[in-house]
């Protein structure tokens, strides 16, 4: 697996096996924050950023845990590190760029419980990626997440103007659109192989 080219890793994570539409990771923000295009874009950017940072950390921890022969600590170590990374990143951004901090707002702390982040850390470990491959994988996953979120937000903004029956309102409708999007993304299968 680790012989894969960087470009195919990126395509794989962003389109072929899109985290939201093929692995169902990060469904909560996908359903919750996809109402408006502007918030969706910001959420996507925040997730991309945290994914890159936590991918870097997860790689380090994995190396450390292998060195001290304690694989059973993997899950606990990952979740603790992701939670504290998000905190650190939040503090760092608040200090360095108040404008960016205001733009990301509430989304930054929410990312801790986004399963896409932990999923990314676990997948990259399972696939045995090197440091560079891990980072490209994180970038692809983040880009795919943002793409799905932005597509969804665009569709939902249009739907605001449509007359929809009461029973279909809300999550039911969003899930069916997600199903159609997921069907569309199946067309990417085999790309970059």
């Amino acid at each position: 697996m680790s012989g894969e080219s960087l470009w195919s890793i990126f395509l794989n994570a962003s389109l072929v096996n899109n985290f939201v539409l093929a692995y169902f990771l990060g469904i909560c923000p996908f359903l919750g924050v996809s109402g408006k295009l502007a918030t969706a874009t910001r959420m996507g950017a925040a997730v991309c950023f945290v994914m890159l940072v936590s991918s870097l950390c997860a790689y380090g921890i994995h190396r450390l845990l292998v060195a001290i022969e304690a694989p059973y600590l993997q899950l606990i170590a990952y979740i603790v590190v992701i939670a504290s990374t998000v905190q650190l990143v939040e503090m760092f951004i608040r200090k360095m760029s108040p404008a960016l901090f205001r733009a990301l707002g509430i989304f930054l702390p929410l990312i801790t419980t986004n399963c896409a982040i932990l999923g990314l850390a676990l997948f990259q470990t399972n696939k045995g990626y090197t440091l560079v491959q891990s980072l490209v994988y994180a970038l692809g996953a983040g880009a795919g997440f943002t793409l799905a979120l932005v597509l969804m937000a665009g569709i939902r903004e249009k739907l605001e103007l449509a007359a929809v029956p009461d029973a279909v309102q809300g999550t039911a409708l969003t899930l069916m659109i997600a199903g159609i999007l997921s069907l569309a993304f199946m067309g990417f299968a085999g790309l970059g192989a």
Partner: peptide
């Protein structure tokens, strides 16, 4: 049994 089926089924149950 593919991913999109999951979205559709859950959407229909919620409906």
């Amino acid at each position: 049994i593919l991913p999109s089926g999951g979205f559709f089924t859950l959407g229909l149950w919620l409906l």
